[in-house]
Amino acid sequence: MTPQHVIIIVSALGGVIGGMGMGGGTLLIPLLTLAAGLEQHLAQAINLIAFVPMSVVALVIHKNNGYVSIAKSAPIVGCAAIGAVCGSFLARYAGGYELRASFGAFLIALGLIQMYKAISAVVKKKKASKNKSAQIKVG
């Protein structure tokens, strides 16, 4: 397997997760560095570029379905753009390991939050169905 094959495979994995709407881009960067051995900054650039065609398609689909709220998102685009310019310029001065490790910490935090949310949703559902069956018994 050539390095190109590895890149295609890990990107496909990132794409599958992204296609499910769960931020596949977030995992694409560590996959590209850890599995495909790319340099951190290059992996970040690739993620940014690969996101563009993917999100254009998704955006058109969501827009047609009426899920895109321009009124809510337009006001923050300007602020976000300023933040992006600063972040992108600063990234150049950060070391590869520092970027990867702090992004890793960010991922761990997000993972824990997501886990908590998923589990509490299950618990809630179970409680609701328990109450329902109790009510039926009483009735």
Binding site: I8, A12, L32, S88
Partner: peptide
């Protein structure tokens, strides 16, 4: 900005785009 700073590799970008699009269709 990343490209301007020299973080770019044609082959790697192409491979990644192919993978992401194919995977994206499967995932969706």
């Amino acid at each position: 900005i990343y490209i301007k700073n020299g973080y770019f590799d044609v082959t790697a970008v192409l491979c990644a785009c192919i993978g992401v699009v194919l995977g994206g269709i499967v995932g969706a």
